[in-house]
Write a protein that binds this DNA or RNA. Structure first.
Length: 929
RNA sequence: AGGCGCGUAGCUCAGUUGGUUAGAGCGCACGACUGAUAAUCGUGAGGUCGGCAGUUCAAAUCUGCCCGUGCCUACCA
């Protein structure tokens, strides 16, 4: 080798640069499906069950999504969070067995099928119910398959081959069995309440099946004579009400006043020719509405007798306008906080069978019985004198005239207003009192059991407890029945004579047996005798044709999933859903379980917020701000979405949008590159001897202490489902501790020291542990990337990081003193980098290796730095303490003296006499041969 | 309209029992390196802590009102 060749020798191939097959760019959209395929081929779910066999179980019970469409961000958030929790529990050694599920029955699916019928010009009522139900079943099956694929694409690990769903025959049977429990207890009772009813279709409607359009109504001013009142002078006066639904008058049972409204008693002195009001009578109405009423009723002269406040009418009783014509019941005056003086008379007539508010005030609050007055075809019932057979929508003028004849009115009018109509027939609908099945909150102490169960449940965040508790405290009895087709029937027979439900366990058991084998379609297709057996005459019993509220279905999942599957347990460790489920699944599950098992089906409840757009607005099609999970997965990958979940405070609402996702991608790259650097550095490490902890340099011991602390934090936070903190800790560790500090300092050693140098081996030993720890810590979050990195590390494609656990960090790695010490060291280092930056700005230096650092330090800091190699710490070519007794830290930067080592690029005096490289490099290169 | 929440830098979040000039990371700007290179390192600029009023020696933190926003109810005779 000539002199010339020597000086230009390229030392690059003598430097141990990182090398790895783990690419810098993830290419997640393409890679993730491959990883999923690998998991399937490995049968990861089952393998994990085997690996965790006998371990303590952790059961996060899946709240079933509704099987009727593609996933949206809310689904993604929910399932990712569940998966992160399950995987982290698994990493902590538990058998976290996750069984996903679906909710299949219910109105939205029923509608879809109906809609298809309408398109074909078919009528739902002409189709046999079993055929209709089969189509609903097929529809739900289709969407379960679609959603299952979509969930798995998010990386969610669970028993996808054997999920639960509410329309499975066994599920349906057990739902029926649970209803049977309430039946046998006696807390299931038949009552009634007003529901939206279409007289044309003769069916109950849901709120969402109703559309509002213009309708012309006959209005009446009806008069109720006061028969009892604390203000005696008012007795005999008439309370006036105004209504747009004269047909509800036979069902009137009360009047509502506003306690703070000003009323006046007014004597009518003169009326117009056409008026039906009577001179000399005294009426009571709202003061500010008086003029308006008088003009509408043709009252031309009047005289105010008394002024009063609403509350003075408390306890008063009036008589019905038709009191002498068969309507001689008492009409109570009640305080209604919803009464306004915007229109009408300031009094509201209450027909408990014809409005939810009427029902609530009269029946629920005051126990007034709800009369049946309207047939299912919309005609008034036979037992109603004078009105029998009249139609509630067509005959209102007639009804008004009859009332006027009986001197029950002071005015008749007309109003065009917005009124509910049936979505299907576009015909007006009414509220109609309808027989319904209820579960009593009181009769068997359900409310008490539920409340005490809540007190024993852990809530994340704690606010959920208050919210649910106040709902349970205030809610009315559970209305279980729906007049619908697609659901689990209420498996009850009613004794036609007594009107009481049949309570016989053998009948219930028989029903359940049949449902288990054939599904609950049998209820609609089999004769009653099949269920009743020989002991009862089918002719004497009415089979209930209502189905159960779908919330009862999902409220029973603990019974047919948690209790029935041997690989699960009840109560679950955790239920986790969006905050809307306080009113939904958390609520219904609690009631169902409290009523039958006297405890909650869960030990903990976690609620997350809703997904909003980047400005914090709700997502809607009309705003055009909807973000689809499918699109994000396609563009960036599911790991990015998963990172978004844990980087957010999911107890509150979460925002998502272009910038937020960009930030996640940035964070992802940082973590990925940290893994990549470790993998590169560790290339070939397995051939070298690891170094025992005691023999490691202090810097490595500091890394060990950081790992120890992180391990503690991560386990603690994972146990309270606080992944946001975990994410922050991990990111800062990769970013601040490793990349910007430890790696940067150790590069020289890693690249330039002899391959088997003890210090270098010590660094690699610690880096190996860093990698193993880091990859297991991110595994629950970045499940794909962790898997990929682990595969690059082990080279064993029959293994997966997800079968493993968090690393066990040795106890003697804990060292809070070292953490404190190096925090101070880094503070001095920061002063140096600032000084270096200033020198750079002054064009004194470029790279830090060009610099020589002169430090003036107080004694304390000198002690701190003793034993630490300063050029290594600062990544400069030279550094020394020039004054060890200074009052404050002072840093001076000079150009390093000497020539640049061709191999390690440090500037050292020895280089010129050493063939262009430094002493250390010379030794290493010579030894290589 | 009612019940329960939320509102700290462009973004995501910390801010312990009220106590010095309100923190972090990202992004941004500027610079260095070119042996983590569609990487990496450094420095820096960004906040009347939703608004107003009050309690206090002292408020992002406690109280009241208001505004914005989300979930759940109720939207009617």
């Amino acid at each position: 080798m000539s002199e010339n060749q020597k000086t230009t020798r390229n030392y690059k191939d003598t430097v141990f640069l990182p090398s790895t097959t783990f690419p810098m760019r993830g290419g997640l959209p393409k890679k993730e499906p491959e990883i999923i395929a690998r998991w399937k081929q490995l049968d990861l779910y089952k393998k994990l069950r085997k690996a965790r066999k006998g371990r303590e179980k952790f059961i996060l019970h899946d709240g079933p999504p509704y099987a009727n469409g593609n996933l949206h961000m809310g689904h993604a958030l929910n399932k990712i969070l569940k998966d992160v929790i399950n995987r982290s529990q698994s990493m902590m050694g538990k058998d976290a067995n996750y069984v996903p599920g679906w909710d299949c029955h219910g109105l939205p699916i029923e509608w879809k099928i109906e809609e298809q019928y309408r398109k074909k010009g078919k009528d739902k009522d002409e189709v046999p119910i079993e055929e209709f139900r089969q189509e609903c079943r097929d529809f739900a099956t289709h969407w379960m398959d679609v959603q299952s694929e979509e969930f798995q694409r998010l990386g969610v690990l669970g028993d996808w081959e054997n999920p639960y769903y509410t329309m499975k025959f066994e599920s349906e049977a057990i739902i029926a069995e649970e209803i049977g429990k309430f039946l046998m207890q006696g807390s299931l009772y038949r009552g009634s309440k007003p529901v939206m009813w279409s007289p044309v279709e003769k069916t109950a409607l849901a709120e969402a099946e109703v559309e509002y359009s213009e309708h012309s109504s006959t209005t009446i001013f009806a008069k109720f004579k006061l028969v009892k009142c604390t203000i005696e002078s008012l007795i005999g006066n008439y309370i006036i009400i105004w209504t747009t639904t004269p047909w509800t008058m036979p069902g009137n049972r009360a009047l509502a006043y506003g306690k703070d409204i000003d009323y006046v008693a007014v004597t009518i002195n003169q009326v117009s020719e056409t008026s039906i009001a009577h001179e000399g009578q005294t009426i009571i109405v709202s003061e500010i509405l008086l003029e308006d009423i008088c003009s509408q009723c043709g009252i031309s002269e009047y005289e105010v007798k008394t002024k009063l406040k609403g509350y003075e009418l408390k306890g008063s009783i009036a008589s019905h306008p038709m009191v002498k014509a068969g309507y001689d019941h008492s009409v109570l005056l009640l305080d209604g906080d919803y009464v306004t003086t915007e229109q009408g008379t300031g009094f509201v007539h209450i027909a408990p069978g014809h409005g939810p508010e009427d029902y609530e005030l009269a029946h629920v609050k005051h126990g007034i019985e709800v009369p049946d007055t309207v047939n299912e075809n919309g005609t008034l019932m036979e037992h109603l004198p004078h009105f029998s057979g009249l139609h509630v929508l067509r005959d209102n003028l007639k009804i008004a005239e009859i009332m006027a004849e009986h001197d029950g009115l002071i005015g008749i009018g007309k109003l065009i207003h917005s009124y509910p109509h049936s979505w299907r027939s576009h015909a007006p609908v009414i509220y109609r009192n309808t027989a319904q099945w209820f579960i009593s909150m009181e009769s068997d102490g359900l409310r008490e059991y539920a409340l005490s169960a809540l007190a024993e449940t852990s809530f994340y965040p704690t606010a959920g407890q208050r919210r649910l508790t106040s709902m349970i405290e205030n809610r009315p009895d559970w209305c279980l029945s729906r007049q619908r087709a697609w659901g689990v029937p209420i498996p009850v027979f009613v004794d036609k004579k007594s009107g009481k439900p049949l309570q016989d366990q053998t009948v219930v058991d028989r029903i359940i047996d049949i449902f288990k084998k054939e599904g609950c379609d049998a209820w609609f297709t089999s004769p009653s005798s099949r269920f009743l057996g020989k002991d009862y005459d089918p002719g004497s019993y009415e089979k209930v044709n209502d189905i159960a509220d779908v919330w009862f279905d999902s409220g029973s999942t603990h019974a047919f999933v948690l209790e029935k599957r041997k690989d699960l347990h009840s109560p679950a460790d955790l239920y986790l859903e969006g905050s809307d489920q306080h009113r939904g699944w958390f609520h219904s599950s609690l009631l169902e379980s409290s009523g039958t098992r006297f405890r909650a089906p869960y030990k903990g409840v976690l609620t997350h917020g809703f997904v909003l757009d980047e400005q914090g607005r709700k997502m809607s099609k009309s705003l055009g701000n909807v973000v689809n999970p499918q699109k994000i997965i396609q563009q960036s990958g599911a790991d990015i979405l998963r990172l978004w979940v844990v980087s957010s405070d999911y107890y509150d609402d979460l925002r998502i949008g272009a910038e937020i996702l960009k930030r996640q991608t940035d964070h992802y790259r940082r973590i990925r590159n940290t893994l990549r650097y470790l993998l590169g550095a560790l290339d070939g490490f397995d051939k070298l001897q690891p170094v025992s902890f005691d023999e490691m340099p202090e810097l490595e011991k500091w890394v060990a202490a950081r790992l120890f602390d992180l391990d503690i934090t991560i386990r603690q936070k994972a146990n309270i489902y606080d992944f946001h903190t975990i994410f922050t800790e991990l990111h800062d560790f990769c970013n601040g501790d490793l990349s910007a500090f430890y790696f940067d300092i150790r590069k020289d050693m890693l690249y330039c020291d002899a391959l088997d140098d003890p210090s270098r081996r010590a660094a690699l030993t610690m880096m190996d542990m860093c990698f193993r720890s880091l990859v297991s810590w991110i595994a629950p979050i970045l499940c794909f990337t962790a898997d990929e990195a682990w595969l690059a590390y082990t080279g064993n494609n029959q293994d997966s990081i997800h079968l493993g656990e968090y690393q066990k960090i040795p106890l003697d790695w804990q060292n809070s003193d070292l953490i404190k010490k190096w925090s101070k060291v880094r503070s001095i280092r920061s002063d140096v980098t600032t000084a270096l930056e200033n020198a750079r700005t002054d064009l004194k230096i470029g790279g830090s290796l060009q610099a020589s650092v002169e430090l003036s330090l107080p004694e304390e800091e000198v002690m701190l730095l003793s034993g630490i190699d300063l050029p290594t710490l600062f990544i400069t070519s030279n550094a020394q303490i020039v004054n060890g007794n200074a009052s404050q830290i002072k840093v001076e930067i000079n150009l390093a003296v000497g020539d640049k080592c061709e191999r390690c690029w440090k500037i050292l005096p020895e280089v010129s006499t050493n063939d262009g490289i430094c002493r250390r490099c010379n030794e290493v290169v010579t030894a290589m041969v």
